[in-house]
Nucleic acid binder design. Structure first.
Lengths: 173, 173
DNA sequence: GACTACATGTAAAAAGTTACATGATTTG
DNA sequence: CAAATCATGTAACTTTTTACATGTAGTC
């Protein structure tokens, strides 16, 4: 799974511009996939030369023009090929946990600050997820709601464990 | 946080070879950081030319010789600089969840297979984590145990949510 | 007047993956 | 005798990040 696959997937339902793709990636998808403009625009250009998408320039008033891309048949086939390829395993990379792992080389006050910060970020993330869940239209298929549910559950588990760790750390000192 | 930082951290406690570093990355660290030999060996070479580590060849009997690297003062300073740099946010990338997000373009039987597979993998991972937790010496600082605890909690939350989703998906059909 | 949103791109550099290449020893 | 473990490395490639570059329109 890479940017190509995800972008093709996002163009499946309707044509979009690079800027709109970035916005789609912001919300529900951002929990398990991310891409910057520096990835999106070159990827769109590459997909176009490969014949998987076609560009149409849309002139807008009061706003810059935008390039709207839509899937070709070849693009649809390419996306299906991705769906039929083996599922890759998840990647979880955490600077915070690496630092905890090397905690012995850092003073305990800083460690506690890191945990507090992580709790704050985690609670903030939880709020965002709940907000999104509330805005979701009812009657969505379980596969679609899973993405947010799993996000919410992972977030809750993480927050709980961090709070427990903070308690242990502050008890010690 | 990158391979350089993690390798310097692993060499902090004792000198190690590239092969031994790979083994360290296998166990507790692999949940939140990963690197292949194709990353480790070039990184070690780079760290050496930068003067952060020094190599010593150890001749072994019955086994290939190995290059054991140890931290220099500059290396220790470099690692401290990493610890003092801002904490980067976690990266979670999931091919499985991307597929669920695009579930509408795939038949439900395949979706169910994906979920079942993910549950199997998740349960397998949980077993490994519990095994590691049992083997951990007692009296470790909370920061160190957090790494496995958070892994266990995230794993449990994920497994639970997946099982619920599977139930919903199979109820429908 | 500063900032945010809209909008698209490029170029250089860093980082990482994959496959290849080699070879000894031990275990089943 | 096949496979796994120990052990190190290279080369080509892919991917991604970061910073730069540009410009309009609306809001505070």
């Amino acid at each position: 799974m890479n940017s190509q696959d995800v972008i093709l997937g996002l163009l499946h339902r309707q044509p979009r511009s690079g800027y709109e793709i970035k916005q789609m990636l912001e919300m529900p998808l951002s929990f398990f996939f991310d891409a910057s403009f520096g990835t999106i625009y070159p990827t769109l250009a590459k997909l176009e030369t490969q014949g998987f998408i076609v560009k149409e320039s849309v002139i807008q008033e009061g706003r810059p023009n935008k390039n709207v891309y839509s899937l070709t048949d070849a693009g649809r086939a390419q996306f299906q090929a991705y769906l039929e390829s083996p599922v890759e395993k998840d990647v979880f990379r955490s600077d915070f946990l690496v630092r905890m792992f090397f905690g012995e080389y850092m003073d305990e006050d800083t460690l506690i600050d890191w945990v507090r910060d992580e709790i704050r970020k985690s609670e903030e993330g939880g709020k965002q997820i709940r907000h999104m869940q509330e805005q979701l239209p009812p009657g969505l298929p379980p596969a679609k709601t899973l993405c947010l549910e799993i996000g919410a559950e992972l977030n809750a588990a993480k927050t709980r464990t961090l709070q427990e760790t903070l308690r242990k750390l502050t008890e010690l000192s």
